[in-house]
Design a binder for these strands. Sequence first.
DNA 1: CCACTGACGAGTG
DNA 2: GCACTCGCCAGTG
Length: 110
Amino acid sequence: MRREQPGTSYERIYAAVRRVPRGRVATYGQIARVAGLPGHARQVGYALHALRPSTTVPWQRIVNAAGAVSLRRGGGGGALSQRLLLEREGVAFDARGRIPLARFAWRPRR
DNA sequence: CCACTGACGAGTG
DNA sequence: GCACTCGCCAGTG
């Protein structure tokens, strides 16, 4: 199944994700836009989901527009891992489990 | 070809 | 802020 390279779009998405600096987070829509695929936020999530465990792509820095972790497996290792990885980078979560985007959102230059 | 699902977002009430 | 709808695209049955 090679869902890791269905085309060139995924590469663009991964490239955009790699731009997010440590200690900052970006939203799916933001990544889609930077990757040149405005409006394809859903594909960004799909592309990241297809990543291998050993990937070098900093997927943990991508959260939804609300600033919350969006892994479907809520209590599963995924969401927890993402949160721990981010906290380890200096990203803080509020009581509701969300990240204050006003403070940690990545601001790419355009 | 059609229906459904999935790491989403924006608009509306 | 919450619930609902629609739009996007790819993969699967």
